[in-house]
């Protein structure tokens, strides 16, 4: 059973459908017990960092997510769900994140030749070929992005792929059982579905 955490931050339905496409048993939930019982956790999300943390807090989900991740349960954070893994975000002052990964979340610099949000199809430059999530992808596949913020990990070792938009930013992170993608696999056609399949194949 895969727990897709529903904390009122959108996008749940497409994520759920993408997993079900491969016959995965999913449960869309905000119940701590169900999350504990699940085999894997997916944290989707679009929207504001601060608001997302408040919604998780309201549902008393912060400690259960932390505990399950520390235990080694496979976890996939998508877009905002990936950003929440970090310690804090420049969005809305200095909102605190889950702090699973060291680092912060920053906004793209607003300059003349760089439109914000970064919206559309862009390439992944995969630098961790052994990352199980990115298995069997071409070297620089196109995926769909839709975001204004991006993570800056402290530890370069967690960077599995980057993407160029004005500069190279981190688009996939990986640390043991914890995976995070800045793009939307559920909206990235075949490439995205392959990533979802890869996540399902994790033990």
């Amino acid at each position: 059973m895969i727990a897709i955490i529903d904390y009122g931050m959108g996008n749940i339905h497409s994520v759920n459908k993408a997993f079900q496409l491969y016959g995965a048993e999913t449960i869309v939930t905000n119940n701590a017990e169900e999350i504990r019982r699940s085999k894997k956790i997916v944290l989707p999300g679009v929207g504001a960092f601060d608001e997302a943390m408040q919604e998780l807090k309201k549902r008393s989900l912060i400690s259960v997510i932390r505990e399950e991740l520390v235990k080694g349960k496979p976890f996939l954070g998508i877009c905002l769900g990936m950003q929440l893994l970090f310690e804090h975000s420049a969005e809305a002052g200095q909102a605190q994140g889950l702090g699973i990964l060291k680092g912060r979340v920053e906004q793209f610099e607003d300059k003349a030749d760089l439109k914000v949000p970064h919206m559309g199809w862009n390439r992944l430059q995969i630098n961790k070929k052994d990352c199980p999530l990115l298995k069997d992808l071409s070297d620089s596949p196109y995926v769909y992005f839709c975001h204004s913020y991006y993570p800056i990990p402290v530890d370069n070792d967690v960077i599995a792929a980057t993407t160029n938009y004005g500069k190279d930013f981190v688009s996939v992170v990986w640390q043991n059982n914890v995976y995070g993608v800045q793009f939307h696999p559920e909206k990235s056609q075949r490439v995205g579905l392959r990533i979802i399949e890869n996540f399902l194949a994790l033990c």
């Binding site: 929207g47 608001e51 949000p117 204004s148």
Partner: peptide, 8 residues
Amino acid sequence: SRKFGSQC
């Protein structure tokens, strides 16, 4: 945009 993010 504050609630759901500008991107959507």
